[in-house]
C-alpha cells in the first residue's frame, strides 16, 4: 500500500474518530481492531524513546533507544540502536522478517539470534518482540479475532471493551482484553493473559497527542503483575511515513553503527 493511500486511510480514521461518535455502537469487534491497527500501523516510523525498567524492588534503570521501522510487502523490518547509557551504547538489533541479529560493539561482529528471542524480552523490558510488532507495524487483526464486549467509561473517556482471542495456537497469550478509545482508536489499556488464563501483563497508554495527523501515545506503561516488574516507554520524538532507505535494515548498517 502506498504511503499516500495509507495517509488517506489514517486521516479518514481520524475523521471518524473526531466526528462519528454516534456510529460507535454499530461497529463490530473486527471493525474496531482494524481501526486500531490503522491508527497504530505505519509504513515507516522513526522513533526516539526513553525506556525505564523497574524491578519488583523498585530499582530503576534508564535506557535511550532509537528505532527505525519499515513494512515492506509482508516483512517487518526494524533496527533498534541503544544511545545510552554508556555500557550499552552502540548495541544494535536488526530484525528483517524472521531473521534477527544483534551487534555488540565489544564483540565487534554481528551475531544471529535464534527464533526463541522473538518471544523473549525486548531489550530487557516487559514487552516481547512479538508485543512490539503487534503495537507497531504488524497490528492485532492478523493474529487475533476481536469481539466487542461492550462500551464503557474509563477516566472520563468513552471506550470500547474488546476481547481478543488468538487465531493460531502458537501465540504466547491465551487472550487479550483491550479498552479502545472511541475518540482516538488507540488502546488505552490492554490486559495480557497467559496460557493458564492468569493475568500476566497490563499495558496502559497516556499522554495522547496528535503527530502528523495521527494519534500517538506519548507514554506506555507495561506492568508484569506476576513478577512485579514495570517498563515505561516515553516517546521523545517520532516521525511517520518518512522514506527510509532499505540499506538501513542491513547487517552492514548494523556494523557501521550509523
Amino acid at each position: 500500500m502506498s504511503i499516500r493511500l495509507k495517509s488517506v486511510i489514517v486521516i479518514l480514521t481520524m475523521l471518524f474518530a473526531f466526528g462519528c461518535g454516534t456510529e460507535a455502537a454499530d461497529l463490530t469487534g473486527s471493525e474496531i481492531i482494524d481501526r486500531v491497527d490503522t491508527m497504530m500501523q505505519s509504513e515507516s516510523k522513526i522513533l526516539k524513546e526513553r525506556m525505564i525498567i523497574s524491578n519488583a524492588a523498585g530499582q530503576q534503570r534508564t535506557r535511550e533507544i532509537q528505532a527505525w521501522n519499515k513494512r515492506a510487502s509482508d516483512k517487518d523490518n526494524m533496527l533498534v540502536r541503544f544511545l545510552a547509557p554508556a555500557d550499552v551504547a552502540g548495541t544494535s538489533f536488526l530484525m528483517v522478517g524472521d531473521d534477527m541479529w544483534l551487534y555488540l560493539p565489544a564483540l565487534g561482529k554481528v551475531r544471529r539470534i535464534a527464533g526463541h528471542a522473538r518471544k523473549g524480552s525486548f531489550m530487557g523490558s516487559d514487552l516481547s518482540y512479538e508485543d512490539m510488532e503487534e503495537l507497531g507495524s504488524l497490528g492485532f487483526a492478523s493474529s487475533y479475532e476481536a469481539k466487542l464486549i461492550g462500551t464503557e467509561e474509563a477516566s472520563g473517556e468513552a471506550v470500547y471493551a474488546l476481547e481478543l482471542l488468538p487465531k493460531a495456537k502458537d501465540l504466547t497469550y491465551l487472550k487479550l482484553c483491550m479498552w479502545v478509545s472511541q475518540k482516538t482508536y488507540l488502546p488505552r489499556r490492554i490486559e495480557y493473559y497467559d496460557q493458564d488464563g492468569k493475568l500476566l501483563k497490563v499495558l496502559i497508554t497516556s499522554n495522547i497527542h496528535a503527530v502528523q495527523d495521527r494519534w500517538v501515545a506519548g507514554e506506555m506503561q507495561i506492568s508484569n503483575v506476576q513478577t512485579g516488574t514495570k517498563t515505561t516507554l516515553e516517546v521523545k520524538d517520532v516521525t511517520f511515513q518518512e522514506e527510509i532507505d532499505d540499506s538501513i535494515f542491513s547487517t552492514r548498517n548494523l556494523e557501521r553503527g550509523r
Binding site: R112, I113, A114, G115, H116, K119
Partner: peptide, 11 residues
C-alpha cells in the same frame, strides 16, 4: 554457518 531450527539456534 548459523541458522535457527524453530526456536533453537545452531552454528
Amino acid at each position: 554457518f548459523a541458522t535457527s531450527l524453530g526456536d533453537v539456534g545452531l552454528w
